[in-house]
Design a protein around this nucleic acid. Structure first.
Lengths: 336, 336
DNA sequence: TTGAAAGCGATACCAC
DNA sequence: GTGGTATCGCTTTCAA
């Protein structure tokens, strides 16, 4: 394992010069530059990351905290798509990615702030924690740059990013309403997260704006509960002609429920989900859904974080575009 | 930002002592231990990771290389499940996870070996690279500990882990054959990876062992191609009563093809997939499939890597259990 | 049990 | 342009 000293010695220059070369600093003649580079190559030398990090005090490592990773049964593809977005952008900006869960932090009896410092992180991207997690309080009041994904929190060095859930849901209601649906039921996720709340709010706003009656079914993102609750609701509310579900998974449950009660989808009942997970294209009928651009969320999260790190001012809320993917599970309503 | 010096000073001891306390070394009186800990807490001190890494030369960071992350369109949930497994185990063993793609390495004009060194990595877990990637050659002959997932490579400090694809496929054939299927077609993935090759081999072995005729359809893991190729094959080979697909996604394509040709699944034709992605439970009929335990693969990969790091001898091939999930897409054959 | 001091490898200021 | 050197924060050896 060669060090900067070896290179300096071999090249007949000082370590200072070698350092300059490797950091693209000027003040080195082209001739010595070339020589240093050649020698370094010969010696198979590469700078030691820890050392340089220590020396300059700053760092180009981003910590990514995904609370979901604690569970042993993640199945959600969207996480990998967010990571994918984070990763690609971070890489092109020259940042490295260190992955954590809240466990990592807690097991060291640290809080996020301490953790960040002791790991020399430039900042944090956080996903999946509850809005009211006490951990987050200290964080948003600290000097640690951080970006929340799908968590409605911000602070002087903290901001958040997500799809504009409210708008998306209003738009869905409008579309459904435009398809002559008046009794549109909304199947919500569990209402602990801002995301679930926002979607419900969007639905309500949309319905109210059109003077349509509210049908809210409070579920919990699970297929099983969406199935049961919607089935039950439908039994007592045969006037429902459309279900708008806060997740694709629940939409499948609802679809099962409808079919089991003898309704045809989409002829009798329309269904629309949220997320556009890839399986929505594999089921029959193919599910209409709100397409979140998870990749873009991850991608932008990095941009925001880097902006914060560099002292730029960023918005308190940041939205990534969505689009509504109309597929086979929605149709114009003909019931009266 | 407090340092070890601040703590030492405040506690009236030397930095050496503080260091010992924080590293659980003995040779410190219980009294001073307590005092140091108390002071550290008061000062909100936590050791600087870079510094300690530099000082001791070694590291407890594992590099995870997922070539897939380069693409912008990952949708596969299995990746996150592998990461999940890696992550949870790494965390409980006190390792950190740094994520990379081959891009990261190349953009620095480095090879894996250099990269590992300059980042002070304990070792590498690698997934998704082609068997014959020239990068890997240097790696398996180096001193860098590494574990390959689904790549059939090993070396003095390198090993691999996967499901036993050959056995799994033989077993599937046996099951299908036991259900009175004799004309079983196999839809392969593209045959560049050892995984695809192994699955094909298992199919062939299984069929040969029972004296059954081979029906191989060489596809590429995509739904579209599986659909087209199987449809075409079925047109000319109406004797086929079962399709065994090397991935769940292809199985969906095949299912579409069958239905479009007027066959019922599973009454006329049985279909079985591979991977047990979660959507297989949402389609109708629910897809029978070989369930890979992705979480366990990631989990074991870490165990293996740590064993290698610690100098323990490990097997050249390591297998994680699979099981065959029989659902609605398979049935006993009654055609003659 | 404690601590002085020599690193670990790289950076950056400042003098030449 | 070049290089000497203090410094970053921590570990570890060895003497006291």
């Amino acid at each position: 394992m060669k060090t900067i000293n070896d290179v300096a010695e071999m090249a007949g220059v000082s370590v200072a010069t070698v350092s300059k070369v490797f950091n693209g600093r000027k003040g080195v003649s082209e001739e010595t530059r070339q020589r240093v580079i050649r020698i370094a190559e010969e010696l198979d030398y590469f700078p030691n990351h820890s050392a340089s990090q220590l020396a300059r005090g700053i760092t180009e490592t981003i910590g990514v905290v995904f609370s979901m990773l604690e569970s042993k049964t993640i199945q959600d593809e969207y996480l990998i798509r967010i990571i994918n977005g984070i990763f690609n952008n971070a890489e092109s900006l020259g940042y490295r990615i260190l992955v954590f869960t809240t466990n990592t932090v807690e097991r060291n009896n640290q809080n996020f702030v301490q953790f960040c410092r002791s790991n020399n992180l430039a900042g944090l991207i956080i996903h999946g924690l509850d809005q009211d997690d006490p951990q987050l309080d200290k964080l948003i009041n600290s000097e640690v740059p951080c970006v929340f994904i799908d968590i409605d929190l911000s602070g002087k060095k903290a901001t958040n990013i997500s799809v504009d859930n409210v708008s998306a849901c209003i738009e869905v209601v409008n579309i459904l309403s435009g398809l002559n649906h008046h009794h549109i039921a909304f199947v919500s996720g569990n209402l602990h997260s801002s995301v679930a709340l926002d979607r419900l709010e969007g639905y309500k706003k949309g319905m109210n704006a059109r003077g349509l009656p509210l049908h809210v079914i409070e579920s919990d993102y699970s297929k099983a509960n969406a199935y049961m609750l919607s089935k039950n609701y439908l039994l007592y509310h045969p006037e429902i002609t459309a279900f708008f579900c806060a997740s694709d998974l629940m939409a499948v449950g609802v679809m099962d429920a409808c079919m089991e009660l003898g309704y045809r989808v989409p002829e009798d009942i329309s269904i629309i989900g949220f997320d556009n997970l890839s399986f929505t294209q594999h089921i029959k009928p193919q599910l209409s859904t709100v397409a979140q651009n998870f990749y873009e969320i991850g991608n932008q999260a990095v941009n925001l974080l880097v902006d914060i790190v560099k002292g730029k001012k960023v918005e308190n809320h940041n939205y990534v575009p969505y689009h509504i993917e109309m597929r086979q599970s929605t149709l114009r309503n003909h019931r009266t």
